[in-house]
Design a protein around this nucleic acid. Structure first.
Lengths: 112, 112
DNA sequence: CTGGATCCCTATCGATACTG
DNA sequence: CAGTATCGATAGGGATCCAG
């Protein structure tokens, strides 16, 4: 959980949580994919290269639980499901923008 | 690696790499600890609550390899080692600032 | 003090197959 | 279409002991 509470305590615990929200594999990719218009489950898995159905379902549940996306079920036949980014999720994406800038300023060195 | 190249390709690959740099457990905590003045190995492990020696050494190597910190060996007896944040590392911390703001705006929901 | 080397354990991942 | 179930492989983490 990365608390390092001897240093800043409160602010840092929140930060660690935030990082872990989108730090998990695929999470940020999925969130961005939805933000860019991939609303359907199959669209999402297709948009995010390498993402399997299993992980997609898992991450979508997590993102929904974290209130970053919303799941909307449309009772047609067969049933349709749409995913949309919440305001909270959009704000997160926005706050991630500087990080994108950082990645562009410095070329990714070795990428872990 | 989270490529989602059907969406934005270049920018997003960089972003995924950036996230993974500090997304690993303890990484951001260690980086911040050093930035806040914990230069010695023992100071770092003490500052980041729960961090073990093994993981500290591992993460420090990674952070050094990613050019976010610099390792300085001072040949005394016994040998001293200092860790300092590089410009690149400082810029990364700065670019993470909005994310901290996001975490404060919305209280952390469930924190994975 | 600053780590390196092991051991073991658990979480997580990817692939495959299956359901409503 | 939108997932769920199961399984084997693997990587990451914690603890402990050891070394320069």
């Amino acid at each position: 959980m990365t608390t390092w509470q001897h240093i800043d305590d409160d602010q840092c615990r929140r930060f660690a949580s935030s990082v872990e929200l989108i730090g998990k594999r695929w999470s940020s990719g999925i969130l961005l994919a939805i933000a860019q218009g991939a609303t359907r489950f199959s669209e999402i898995t297709a948009s995010v290269t390498g993402l399997s159905d299993r992980l997609a379902a898992q991450r979508l549940k997590e993102l929904e639980r974290d209130l970053l996306i919303e799941r909307q079920v449309i009772p047609t036949t067969p049933v349709q499901v749409r995913y949309v980014v919440t305001q909270r999720g959009q704000d997160l994406l926005d706050s991630l923008q500087p990080l994108v800038g950082w990645g562009q300023k410095y070329g990714t060195p070795a990428a872990n």
